[in-house]
Design a protein around this nucleic acid. Sequence first.
DNA 1: GTGAAAGCGCTAACAC
DNA 2: GTGTTAGCGCTTTCAC
Lengths: 338, 338
Amino acid sequence: MSATIKDVANECGLSVATVSRVLNNSANVSEDSARRVNEAIEKLGYSPNFLGRNLRKRETNVILVIMPTSEHSFYMKIVAGIQAYAQPRGYDIICASSNSTSEIEVRQMNMLFNRTVDGVILLGTSYDAETLNRLSKTYDIALCCEGVDGAELLTVVVDDEQAAYDAVRELIRLGHRRIGFLGANDRAVSSNFRRKGYIRALKESGIEVRNDLIYKGNFEYEHGALGFDKLMSAAEPPTAIFCVSDLLAIAAIHRAVDRGLRVGDDISIMGFDNITMCEMMLPTVSTVEQPCSKLGEMVVRKLMSNIGLPAASKDNGFYTVPHRVIIRESVKPYKNRT
Amino acid sequence: MSATIKDVANECGLSVATVSRVLNNSANVSEDSARRVNEAIEKLGYSPNFLGRNLRKRETNVILVIMPTSEHSFYMKIVAGIQAYAQPRGYDIICASSNSTSEIEVRQMNMLFNRTVDGVILLGTSYDAETLNRLSKTYDIALCCEGVDGAELLTVVVDDEQAAYDAVRELIRLGHRRIGFLGANDRAVSSNFRRKGYIRALKESGIEVRNDLIYKGNFEYEHGALGFDKLMSAAEPPTAIFCVSDLLAIAAIHRAVDRGLRVGDDISIMGFDNITMCEMMLPTVSTVEQPCSKLGEMVVRKLMSNIGLPAASKDNGFYTVPHRVIIRESVKPYKNRT
DNA sequence: GTGAAAGCGCTAACAC
DNA sequence: GTGTTAGCGCTTTCAC
């Protein structure tokens, strides 16, 4: 087995207390002792066991990020943002994917319950509001990217309703009036908000909201083609489509091309998230940018300052970060063709 | 604070030993006691503290996966494969990204040294062979996807040389004779092997290996355009390009289109990895598939059986999993144009 | 400036 | 079938 603090103490002829002091750079240890301790550590290749330390200190300085799926590069960008903030400030970030399965999610949440980590950031969850409210009394939990209706715990998201509104307004400004919506089903809070924003933008411009131009599936690639076909089968098919994820938009673009349409010219397609792939695609994909590093930074910053606080004084606020509509090749002004 | 095993014992009027027995489903506990313990657990909302448990058991049942970057969806697919195998067998998988920075990697490796995790899987590393060999004596470490020259520790990869050979053979079979190579610099072991395979395929078909058709950058997107331009500036530019990553291939495709070329017809481009994006792209991207779930499963399976074994009996073998060349729209037979 | 010792929460020998 | 207790490796009072 590897060396313990006791071994180090024996090696340098000092007590474990002194070794511990050196380990934690605490004051009141002579230069000479420090040197002897460090030599012994070096000699034995000693590395402190954090299970012992954390058990004693009742903290681990580790935060777990649980994401619904590891397939979305979007989530990993958030994690990168979280890490960039937390790492230099003494917290390690680890992440796990629940595959959108509540069973796996619960299992991973166990790391929080059993004190393997100090806090958890959920980028989407299958917990309901009631459970989250209860858990967040005892544990440090935050939501990011995807809120939960009625949940009163730290949440950091973009203003989905406004973001969708802004995106659809842009399509309208470009002359489109038959605009389709490719979204997720009603359980997805963010998709619902985006649908509301879509509807608000239409109404505000005096455009009729038509049910055959609204598709509800989920955020995944597969639904892009399904939704596209459904929308295009409408009596008066859309000239532009707003999708609640870039993956949906990319799939829709693919499907449009397969059907012989020129994306941009014949049909405009807009996504949401601004994943890296948007700029890699041909055509490049218009989208609503979610500021991943900002989202990550804010949520972990607030979570970190919650850790250790009594339940009553924890920040369980709802925060939004600014979004940005980005027009690329997949969206062009509407031209009335003969 | 949350309840401890002692609280549970007090609550149900039994000893901590009995509670512990119930917690660990060990034999020798009466039905009645078990019931009382479970009731107390329920009542107190008790969840065992794993710091205590792990400290005592000297194991955590957690494996850490360190990847060079979280931007590559490829890595996340490996992680998914690892998780799919490990999770049901009692191991939790967590992952972290080193941003290809040795400083961050070391910091994350600390979780191994300080016993927060039982083992580590490195999907690429900045450690040298010597260090890895030394560390793997004391700790459970495995390499996946990217080997290290001279490292004698558990490694699971595809046969990069053969995979590249097979891919380039396929291009040759389709009539191409001026074939470019878009690769990484010499420190990347996998890229080196792929370059060797590329050269072997050319030589075997009596095709001259030309230095102006070989580009060395790295695996990232940015180098795709740079490399493409470099190769196309050759006196006799290639009619097909083999890239060591799909990201490179996608960037090259993008660049080709920007330069007015029809990918497939005017120039064939092949990638490596088979990331999800390959099928999303327009045109779809030909590639060499790395069987991510198989890679992940094999490496974690072997690592798991290493854990707890004395250094001498650990499996430090070098294993390969089968690859597969996939031809999609980005590669077409060479047609001599006038 | 240093050491002795208690104790973080848990498991597992051992005794009964 | 159950309880007592030592101790996993560490930090931190409290003496000195």
